[in-house]
Design a protein around this nucleic acid. Structure first.
Lengths: 142, 142
DNA sequence: CTTTCTGTAACAGATTCTGTTACAGCTGTC
DNA sequence: GACAGCTGTAACAGAATCTGTTACAGAAAG
């Protein structure tokens, strides 16, 4: 499967908004953001819509419209972005129900759910450790 | 995207082989495994092929053919299974190259690679903590 | 040599993601 | 209040991937 790039796009958008803000530019339009990400403005608006619903960005309508961060970039973690974009969990259970007459088929789904839950918690814990400000700092040294 | 169920299928297969072995059944055919997972035998053979290439199972040909674990189930971790089935990493970078004339576009890929690397390492560390024997034990109490 | 099952190719259907066009709706400014 | 600028979202196309299925050549035990 093609890896999911939604977290990447959303993080790119937020980092760019953070930098623009630091440079004194209050808002950016989806066209301006799209120019940095090098994709279609609608893709950016979809991503920004996710981020707005999660309370991470604000939008201004009318003339001079555009987007800005709703919170300081130091306080926005990658976990919030991850949840905002609504990615699928990394592992899925069986698509078709296993044979419930087999002892393994009967009990494996709760067993795997627990194991997968531990892995996802470890992943989420690590996503908490990086903020948009961290990403921006790392970005600008490269 | 539909979550990837390859790790689930492979783990199911290994747990079933482990239980059969404990019950004195030396080998299982792909048809027998498919009956427990409730899917097509070719799906199982594809999964078993991955596991064989990783050295986790052995195959016997000819009459009375079938599959068996190559190592004790206590020593097979979910990380090995995860690597064997060759899943995509959970996060992908941009599909199209970002705008390199933008400071964010220029530096964000290495920055994100590092952050994603930390997350994947946390995930892999946690996958090491569960073995096929653990999964089978949890499965049988349910 | 026969039988049994593996290994893999080829293909169909479903699903998902990105990218694109199009257009209605909101809101400052004049 | 009309206009202009940008958002929000629907609709659709193309590419990619995954599961499931059929088919068949190949290996090896007896």
């Amino acid at each position: 499967m093609a890896a999911n790039s939604r977290l990447t796009i959303a993080t790119h958008v937020l980092a760019w908004l953070a930098l623009a803000q630091r440079r004194g530019q209050e808002v950016l339009t989806s066209d301006q953001v799209a120019a940095s990400v090098n994709t279609n403005p609608v893709i950016i608006r979809r991503s920004l819509g996710d981020l707005r619903r999660a309370g991470l960005v604000e939008v201004r309508h009318g003339a001079g419209a555009g987007w800005s961060l709703a919170r300081p970039p130091e306080e926005i973690t990658l976990l919030e972005v991850y949840d905002a974009v609504g990615s699928e969990p990394p592992f899925g259970l069986h698509r078709t129900e296993p044979n419930l007459e087999c002892p393994v088929g009967r009990g494996i789904r709760p067993a795997l759910s627990e194991a997968y839950g531990r892995v996802e918690r470890a992943m989420r814990r690590e996503l908490t450790e990086t903020s948009i400000a961290d990403v921006l700092r790392e970005t600008l040294v490269n």
